[in-house]
């Protein structure tokens, strides 16, 4: 499997480390009154879809970026990958 890193280009699986469902980037509000229940869901419960799956990969063998990759868990076909942090932040060369 090869993953299209938005920074480095298409790279071999060996350069990446998998974390899991992309929802792990959406940490619950620790101050909410039901924080215990929400953290339990966040840490433990998964949709685990058979099909398209947004998931977090770390390009530790490359640019050290965390990526959000959309991949089909039935076929392993990767639909796309983006930097996990782009949604909330700036880029350095623009």
């Amino acid at each position: 499997m090869r993953i299209p890193c938005p920074f480095c280009g298409v790279r071999d699986l060996t350069e990446f480390t998998y974390l899991g469902d992309a929802s792990l980037a959406q940490r619950p509000d620790p101050a909410s009154p039901d924080a215990a229940a929400r953290f339990h869901e966040y840490v433990h419960l998964r949709d685990n879809p058979a099909g398209l799956h947004d998931e977090l990969w770390y390009h530790g063998g490359g640019c050290r970026s965390w990526l959000t990759v959309t991949r089909n868990t039935r076929t392993h076909v990767i639909e796309g990958a983006k930097l996990t942090r782009t949604s909330k932040s700036w880029t350095a060369t623009s």
Partner: peptide, 13 residues
């Protein structure tokens, strides 16, 4: 292999 999968096959690494 270390990533979610229903494909019943793995990869070279």
């Amino acid at each position: 292999d270390g990533y979610n999968s229903y494909a019943r096959r793995g990869n070279l690494p």
